[in-house]
Amino acid sequence: MRGSKNISRYNRWGYIFLIPFIVIFIVFQLIPLGTTIYNSFFEHYFANGGITEIGPKFVGLQNFGTLFSDGRVLTCFKNTMIMWILGFIPQIIVSLLLAAWFSDPSLRLKGQPFFKTVIYLPNLIMASAFAMLFFTLFSDFGPINSMLTKIGLISSPIKFTSTVMGTRGLVAFMNFLMWFGNTTILLLAGMLGIDTSLYEAAEVDGATSSQVFFRITLPILRPILIYVLITSLIGGLQMFDVPQILTSGAGGPIVDGKKTSQTLIMLLNDHLFSKNYGMAGALSVVLFIITSLLSFLVFKMTKSNDEYK
């Protein structure tokens, strides 16, 4: 069949069908990536409240030096990581637990579709509206404080939205709520793929359910766990909507002159709005490099999985 005239004629359509994707990708992603990198080598911003334009002047790698010496990037990186970890740890523990239960044949849990539907729901909620909702619910005189007071758990309102722990905790909690259902379903798919004869053998040998979980399930799940970890980290680095709305873009509260809940993308957003193209470019390039390295790991894993088949 190969080499026949007919075949080569229609195989041309492979290229034709790729045109929309490739054209749109080049115009709206590749060219912007190029100009973003280009911008990072120039000093270019607006002073005096946006009236005086400074630059563009070629400065080499100076923007990257400024980026790391002024400390804001490191603060934002720290904030982003703290809020990500605070949300990720409970997320992975709860997801492992729920997925193990859902997939355990001896438990035969009923209503699984209902529970899966409910725990996945927060993932689809508009993050900005969800953050706005939490801001109103957890405000000093909002419903949560009023409930806690009524039950008698607290005597004066907890200041969720104006303390460091409160704000970071709320962001992490929202991230947890939005993502644990998704992670549960991912892990569950992995667990259901495990050969049941392994479990049967373990049962014959008299293993307890926790032994089965730690000795069989976890080691086999390792690739999926790493996949979940890296994709969640990439997602975590993009954290924006929730802290932005919750703190009205301020990234507060401010402690020792440092913003305690500003994330990297919030900083990028600030630079974009104040038209500091040089710094926005440099920050974008750094984020691009980090996410590229991380996604390269995911890519490797996806590819090696492909080769299995």
Binding site: I7, G14, T36, I265, L272, S284, T302
Partner: peptide, 27 residues
């Protein structure tokens, strides 16, 4: 379809899959 660049393009799309739109927002 079968063509020369198929493998390359498929690999390329997989490689860029995870890169967030925010990093190209400036451009």
């Amino acid at each position: 379809y079968e063509y020369k660049l198929k493998k390359f393009i498929f690999g390329f799309i997989l490689a860029i899959m995870m890169i967030p739109t925010q990093v190209t927002a400036l451009g």
